[in-house]
Design a protein around this nucleic acid. Structure first.
Lengths: 197, 197, 197, 197
DNA sequence: TATGAATGAGTATTCATTCAT
DNA sequence: GATGAATGAATACTCATTCAT
């Protein structure tokens, strides 16, 4: 009984997150009003403020879940087909992310335009988001990077993800300087060079 | 007489641009109202709409001038101390840009947060902004890149500038993953690898 | 023509003040919304904020005008029937104020409940509200008070007005400890004692 | 058992009163929300409505206790050092109250701004608040006031307390027309005159 | 008694845009 | 061209109150 209460409570919060996500995607963060969110979530206005401080608060929530999920999915997808070559593993991860954004242009637009990757990264690594940390741990222990300090490995991965995000945004959204499919071989060549010992 | 009229007209427009720039820097684009702009510019509200469609219109104006100026300044600064080594020339340009953003954090924040480099780049290369095109031309003809197609060279430069912008933003604004001064050697090593034949 | 513009502008402001006054009187300050004010004033919502910072801002405006007017009316009414006896002049002023509040209970309620005399007094004496200052000047030079310092005279008048205001409020609004008509002789006896040399 | 139940119930009510008092003092009556009260009292929201009709209801409760206590404390403090001179006894009471408000400015602010003395007085004299009535009785029987009717004595005391409250507020809170310490001799001279036979 | 999630009417405030002068 | 008063839709946020558990 008590559980059903808490469950119901979580349902409300979830429906607010879902509604926000849909609206942020379709209208953009700035152009979405809290009015619209609560209407779509079928919840009273006050309920919004019961769970979130303001619009940015939901956004943060969404970004963390999303980034975490994409990264983890990319990692486990790579694991399945891994050849054991570290460089190719990294490229597999990047490729997964690129393909995800290709299929979800609106997500990409949202992630890049109204908030930025780095902010999210910061949160991911700091917080209790354990899964992502586990990925990182595995990288630290990879024999291929044995000579590098953990700090350097982190920087390396950070730069690659940044680069990947930047290029995704410009080429998928603006097709600048070319389509993402034309950029891919180019980008992977660069990543290989970066990771080359 | 006619000239003084035109001059006066341009004065109004310029003071609107100047006021906007100051306010965008100090308060951010979103939080600046047209009311504040015209008040700071000492101009009537209606006058704003004589010269600009809306706030974004001024922003575009500002961004183009700004990006163009920084890029050109970086280029001419490099020219003065060039050793003829193409790779080091590129790094000199990047370094100039980084140092500029280090000194002008607010500009960096504005450029990245409220608009993004790619959008500006797009304009720069498309438009009549001749100076930047000239820089590009020189790169195309550089013997070091003789084996590459113009298209590839453009992509290369684009990626480097994107990377530079991304890393500047995260490390200067968020100090993530490290301070920009600690990131620099790391970044330059990567750029060298990217440009390596 | 230009004058008609300014006139029209002042009309809007005046209609806002008038509407506010009416509503504050009938509903009280706290229960009056800006929505109601602008509706009653037949003016757009934004126009309110063109002339006033917020609700309290109008209130201050109203209080100053009102207090000033009542005090000045009381003074000139006294002047007309003055016998030259200073003490009786003061009592005549007090009596005028009491009669005014008897006829305008709502004003009394407004003045006392949501703002207090002292605040208003402070403004009156500090500001350019010249007429009130003139009254004060005359008191300072009255031969009856020749032996007192200006400072003491000011205190004396301040205390009398405070007393008057307090007793008005409790006896007119709450009929505590008695009706104002029953309090009057009592109050005047006290004032005479206070002013007695 | 039943008693401990009642005790527990009273505990909840008391903690609501205490929390309200603290918040009213620090934030003012109007700016304190029931939300804050229950949070500070560590009680569920619904519980508030079990004991009080609304915010004003708690306020009344607080005001009555407070006013009663201050008045009674003033009276018993006077009794201890009484010389038997009625006028000086009254002044001792007034002085106690003034000193209390000097030390508790916030209480003074609360008493005057959000509710007014007279309202409280009314309650005190009407209600079963016996102690205060006892004080009154003693005054009625004081030989010094033998010639006055009970009604007149009540008015006299009422006016003095009103005057005292008014002057406290203006001089302690606004320092208008002077600091309370500078007003004291002035005020006591007036009270002596008022009470003079 | 006690709880605290849910409500939604109510309110203040902002601001881009227009238009008569 | 230039002005700036006027607009009113849009929006964020609050909070007393209820009620099922």
């Amino acid at each position: 009984m008590a559980q059903s209460m808490k469950q119901k409570k979580q349902e409300k919060k979830q429906s607010l997150v879902d509604a926000s996500y849909d609206l942020f995607l379709s209208k953009g963060f700035n152009k979405t009003s809290i009015d619209e969110i609560v209407k779509k979530a079928n919840v009273a206005k006050g309920t919004f403020y019961l769970y979130f401080k303001d619009k940015s608060d939901v956004m943060e929530d969404i970004m963390l879940r999303l980034s975490c999920r994409v990264l983890c999915d990319a990692y486990s997808s790579m694991k399945k087909s891994s050849t054991g070559d570290f460089v190719e593993d990294i490229i597999a991860i990047v490729d997964y992310i690129i393909e995800y954004f290709k299929k979800n242009k609106l997500v990409l637009k949202l992630v890049k335009k109204d908030f930025s990757w780095p902010l999210i990264c910061e949160k991911i690594f700091d917080s209790e988001y354990g899964e992502v940390n586990k990925i990182l741990e595995e990288c630290f222990q990879n024999p291929y990077l044995a000579e590098h300090s953990n700090d350097d490995i982190f920087k390396l991965l950070f730069v690659i993800i940044e680069l990947c995000g930047s290029i995704c945004y410009t080429s998928i959204i603006n097709e600048q300087p070319d389509t993402i499919d034309n950029m891919k071989p180019f980008l992977y060549r660069i990543i290989r060079k970066i990771l080359e010992v």
